[in-house]
Design a protein around this nucleic acid. Structure first.
Lengths: 124, 124
DNA sequence: TGGGTTACCCACCAAAAGGTAAGTATGGCG
DNA sequence: CGCCATACTTACCTTTTGGTGGGTAACCCA
């Protein structure tokens, strides 16, 4: 279980390994639009078309959206399905690995929200 | 509970809120050295001196380390304690909020490791 | 023939992040 | 006096990331 991980262990190798793994995980999520994209895909059972994603990610431009989707695809988070028709139709959906991000994101969200509240308290 | 979060809900407002919270959380962790620093601090019960951190974060340079520590301090993740002596001594430690990152990081690490394994399988 | 649709690509630019190498301040010590 | 150690700061440069504005291919329809 993730909860049982012994953070306080003094083994520098273990620490380094964790740091590496986490850095690695974050690298996959970094990029201005990736979290937005992933949350949009989490929010719909269905796959989303490129144009649909473009509409839902307010403020994104095509180049960026394509770039981020490509990276997510390369990193095994989303799948890209091309329907050979005119005009073109391409759908994006979360892979199993993408869906497995759920618990991590949930924890992160909890932490972020708690943090926001505490920070607000201190300012007041 | 974080686990119970309903990812599949179709509410676009909720999705946007989650995306924002997660983006926010990631913003705090982004930066080439932050995870390394945090993992090092998790790995020791004690606070760490600047020079000690510098030694433990292989490849970091002073400027970057200071920069990242400053941001972590501003974001409420670490504390900075100055001992007024010569030569100077400054110690860094995790705040409560920093320690609260534990579960998120544990989940992320689990995901990252699982992912690495699966990716390796596919390549082989 | 020429416009419409969709999912891209490309050349180019601006801003942000990361990195190097040189300082600086302080006081103890020989 | 001059060197040491520690924790920084500063000027400057390179790399990465983000963004704009134009293509382009494909086929349908009028």
């Amino acid at each position: 279980m993730a909860q049982d991980r012994e953070w306080r262990c003094g083994d520098p190798q273990q620490q380094r390994k964790w740091a590496d793994a986490t850095t690695d995980a974050l690298r996959v999520l970094e990029g201005k639009w990736k979290i937005v994209i992933i949350c949009q895909l989490f929010g719909t059972k269905e796959a989303l078309r490129f144009s649909e994603l473009e509409r839902r990610c307010e403020g994104v431009n095509q180049k960026m959206l394509i770039q981020q989707l490509k990276e997510l695809e390369k990193d095994g988070i989303v799948t890209r399905t091309v329907y050979p028709q005119v005009p073109p139709k391409v759908e994006y959906a979360l892979t199993e690995m993408g869906k497995a991000l759920g618990p991590s994101m949930a924890e992160l969200i909890d932490w972020a929200i708690t943090r926001k509240e505490r920070m607000a308290d201190k300012v007041t």
